[in-house]
Design a protein around this nucleic acid. Structure first.
Length: 200
DNA sequence: CAGACGATTGCCT
DNA sequence: GGCAATCGTCTGT
């Protein structure tokens, strides 16, 4: 299987986010392929974007976003959740795309096990329909922060297909009430219309 | 070094 | 619809 190359990520973040819809996210866990098609994501773009973690400057947490494109930015929030981002743009410009939902393809039974809560398996639609759900289903945590998605061997992206423009919807990003109004309103969330795996 | 809070989820009423 | 869970990161003293 081919992978998305470095040049794919070294572009305008909104273009990368739109083009990631339809790409295949692949995780290798104990030699097994876990994968799914990206159906929802959000762009976080530079220090002028008050919703972007990098807006308050370069810190140990945001360091990866300032680095070269095609690397994973994984961070922890709400005391229990991991979020997976793909770093974009040229080195030195902090930006990334948050992966919010995938449609499961390979390793679904393993994902069910990873998603069990107090012994209760989730329904299939709940497996990966949310940024913290998909990281749990694919066993993604801080050990993958800074991972190279182009040359690494545990996590990467493969070209799979491209959703047509008339099936792609755009709207404001979710959960950023702390940001400036202009950033809360920016239509930087992309999703596939009607796909059951899109969050909420 | 203490205090606040979060790019969410799941359970409860 | 409301809210607790749970802890790393950031801010200010």
């Amino acid at each position: 299987m081919s992978r998305l190359p470095r040049e794919f990520f070294a572009r305008d973040t909104l273009t990368v986010a739109r083009d990631l819809l339809g790409a295949r996210l692949v995780r290798i866990l104990d030699g097994q392929r876990l994968s799914g098609t990206i159906v929802e994501c959000e762009a976080y773009i530079g220090q002028a974007d008050t919703a972007c973690h990098a807006s308050r400057g370069r810190t140990s947490r945001t360091e990866v976003m300032f680095g070269p494109p095609g690397f994973a930015y994984v961070y922890f929030t709400y005391g229990m959740h991991w979020m997976l981002n793909v770093v974009t743009e040229e080195e030195g410009f902090p930006a990334a795309v948050l992966l919010r939902a995938i449609q499961p393809a390979e390793g679904i039974q393993t994902m069910r096990t990873l998603r069990q809560t107090k012994g209760n398996p989730r329904t299939d639609r709940e497996l990966t329909s949310g940024p913290a759900r998909l990281t749990q289903a694919l066993a993604i945590d801080k050990t993958l922060n800074g991972a190279d998605l182009v040359a690494g061997d545990g996590l990467w992206l493969e070209p799979e297909g491209r959703f047509p423009d008339d099936s792609v919807e755009r709207g404001p990003r979710i959960g950023i009430n702390y940001a400036a109004e202009k950033d809360q309103l920016a239509p930087w969330r992309f999703w596939v219309r009607g796909n059951p795996y899109v969050s909420r």
